[in-house]
Amino acid sequence: MDVLDRIKQQVETYPVIIYMKGTPQLPQCGFSSRTAEALKSLGIEFAYVNVLADPEIFQNLPRFADWPTFPQVYVDGELIGGCDITLEMHDSGDLEKITTAALEKAS
């Protein structure tokens, strides 16, 4: 499967998914770490892809969403942003709202 189709399938399959450097348990970048922590703090189920372990995704994800950096968080198939946006939305309560809605929609 073409890598862009593979990414599309992932973001459409998982209501909440983070593309990060490392894993939520062992993040390898401060930005990825903080973003995964924000998701973990919500106590919700979320999927992750370690882009360091998947060079094809590492190279192609930026053009998939026209977004140049990692991490990237997708909710209900849409990119919400990287570390700074995810944290801002976490602080405002919006992150909890949209992730809860996406998980309910998928269940």
Binding site: K21, G22, P27, Q28, G30, F31, S32, S33
Partner: peptide, 8 residues
Amino acid sequence: SPKCRGGG
């Protein structure tokens, strides 16, 4: 900003 975790 966060501290680095060495992921390079």
